[in-house]
Design a binder for these strands. Structure first.
Lengths: 221, 221
DNA sequence: AATTCTATGGGGTGATTTCCTAAATTTGCC
DNA sequence: GGCAAATTTAGGAAATCACCCCATAGAATT
């Protein structure tokens, strides 16, 4: 019984109508929850938040143009008590931390079965967080290691030099090339890379490149 | 009335249970069709083809390890009369031609609305093809010119396995992770990476990741 | 003045990449 | 059917890189 005394209203935000259909089916069989509106992009989701005043939002991170994280940030700012559950097709370790920092209350994968989805829905609707132990631990470690965990994108905490290198990585340059370009030792670039990795919270260099490219491409649009 | 005189049996193959739920909902409201089995990977799908003898299969291309195309090929070989409809999260022009060549009878996007899905289901189940005019034209042109499409992106010259790995790289997975996902040696993945690099013309692994991420992000419209 | 942050790099170990090679399988073609 | 080409698989060796700890010096902050 997530919201005492009445049925909780849920807004679905996903750009796949058939997936929304499935979500609706699961939610309506759950009891205590009812879908009150649907949206397939950031703007119509924000409008529905105003007009329908839902208690909870289930949101995909990839709304065609990747605006899921921004939607979470905006919704969290304007609706502090809204419960937000992320349903992403990507594994938790890829987007989980960013989603939680943006203001989500829980994260599940679309690959998860309906039982897990139901569990997450009930917990998040009841006001609890729903994240895996692994992610919780990872976030605690990042917290403990002094990572400046603002609601901001971690990119903003990079120093100028680090941002410059992050940008070059995102444009496809190797460490050696960056070193040559900046007239410093490859070891220096290496050190910067390590710092960047710690700041944005990735564990290996494959994902550093991935993030960097993602970021660079997000600037071009 | 797709199959005269009786209800057509449909097998759903998708690794997102909630999406399957949505598909089921649409299909069961359609009349003339009924879901007889579900699967979330290549092997269990092939087993269901044997045990349930469905008339039709609705299949996602990205079954966790991206084995959808291979499933279509195998299913087409062993079940020549099976109707196969692809429901992919990627737009038709990216995977459509590959899917049809592998043996599919139709292709829709998960972003399409249930009406279009219903239309595709009925047409394909009735024995027709369901592809857009654009794709049909493109395939005819390729057929006519005979030559491998030089004007196309080099990505299209990748073999199926190579494309699968390219895609996983673009989603941020390391070679080791890909090897585990595909149940092959990391050395094999490395070899594929080398081949891919040669085909798309990049010299080092940083740029390979860069191109892969770029490509994957370009798939999300 | 002390501390933290930033930029710069060294050193060493183990993992990864790269290159070469090669077998089994599949595919395409005549 | 059968041969050639491409694909998929993977091993070994050498080169490279990632990733850990560490150090120095200047700048910024407190």
């Amino acid at each position: 019984m997530p919201i005492p005394g009445r049925t909780a209203k849920v807004l679905l935000v996903d750009d796949h109508p058939t997936f929304r259909e499935g979500l609706k089916s699961v939610i309506n069989h759950l009891g205590g929850l009812a879908v009150c509106a649907e949206a397939d992009n950031l703007n119509s989701a924000m409008l529905s938040l105003e007009s329908e005043a839902p208690d909870m939002m289930v949101v995909d991170l990839n709304l065609g143009d990747d605006s899921g994280l921004r939607l979470i940030q905006q919704a969290r700012r304007t609706h502090p008590n809204l419960r937000i559950l992320v349903a992403s097709m990507y594994e938790e370790f890829m987007y989980g931390e960013r989603a939680i920092k943006a203001g989500a209350n829980g994260y599940i994968c679309k690959q998860d079965n309906p039982e897990k989805l139901a569990e997450a829905l009930e917990l998040v609707c009841g006001g609890d967080m729903y994240i895996s132990k692994q992610l919780a631990n990872r976030m605690l470690q990042h917290q403990a290691s002094g990572a400046p965990q603002e609601t901001d994108e971690p990119v903003n905490t990079l120093s100028e030099r680090e941002l410059q290198i992050f940008n070059l990585i995102g444009n496809g340059y190797s460490s050696k090339e960056i070193a040559a370009k900046l007239h410093v030792s490859p070891k220096t670039v290496d050190a910067h890379r390590e710092h960047i990795k710690r700041k944005i919270g990735v564990s290996d260099s494959t994902r550093l490149v991935h993030r960097a490219v993602e970021w660079v491409l997000s600037l071009r649009k």
